[in-house]
Amino acid sequence: MLAPTIPPRCNPVAILRGVAKSFGDVQALTAVDLELPAGLVGVLGPNGAGKSTLFRLLLGLDTAEQGTVQVLGLPMPEQTLDVLARIGYMPEDDSLFPGLHGLDQVIHAAQLSGLSPVDARSRAHQALDLCGLTDARYRMAAGFSLGMRQRLRLAMAVVHGPELLILDEPTAGLDPDGRAQMLELIKEIAGQGVSVLLSTHVLPDVETVCDHVVLLSRGQVGYAGSLHAFRAGTGSRWRIRIVGETALLLQNLTAAHYTCEAEGRDVLVTATPDQVPELWKICADIGIGVRRFGPAEEDLGSAFVRHLRIDDPLRKASGGAA
């Protein structure tokens, strides 16, 4: 058996420049400048943020009113068919081709993507094996459980070997075990050089699989960059990992009127960047060895809310949560 040939990734997989799109009075995307890097990218945002519109533009289902869209190095919508042949899309909706059993669903998807009947059948069997649907391939897809339908849709999305996989809520409705399996599959596929755009409301999913994050809010890009930077603090909370017990440091910080708490061998302190030298001084004064000192990372949920507040003046003013 030949080892699969992994062609070099197209990086970035998509470039949007000054893209605007509206539906009637609703401005879905406003002057979006965005480069989606190769790899696993999580697309986050509250409902109505423009995630679906972004995907529709990438898939050529809609055209931008302003600006340019380039996917896998090709301009859209001029070369939609060439681009779509290299993309796999798993829609959020519970949609399948009507009246076909599992295998035929995948074969049909493969043939539509340009595979010959022989190749389509061969690949369909393998894709179903990959997605754990070997035993259910000849059953009518309408009778599949939700988890099986999700896996079937993934098989349909990957059967033609796309370079870019767009997954819209792939773990929606799955139980924890099914979710873990789905995320493992996604990681495995991404490991073969396939770039993945993952849209989800389940933030731990993004934490589990993604390297990069794009946050959309009110039709604009609120954040685009690495997951690590996304979770990095605002500069008002610091994590100090020390050698030895935390109690002494906590006591001194409290005495200096800092808000602080212990988390394992770390001490989390709320302070402005100007106060950082003073924090170092306190540690030195009491003779505590510092192993690491840096901005405290937030959990993804907190980072999500914080970025939305920064991006959205209304939320910021009201202090409302996302």
Binding site: P4, T5, G114, D119, L130, H160
Partner: peptide, 19 residues
């Protein structure tokens, strides 16, 4: 040898001809 195989239990890209 067909060039469109998944690795055992894994995923591989399609490198065959498109119709």
């Amino acid at each position: 040898v067909p060039q469109l195989v998944f690795e055992p239990g894994g995923y591989a890209k399609f490198s065959g001809e498109q119709v």
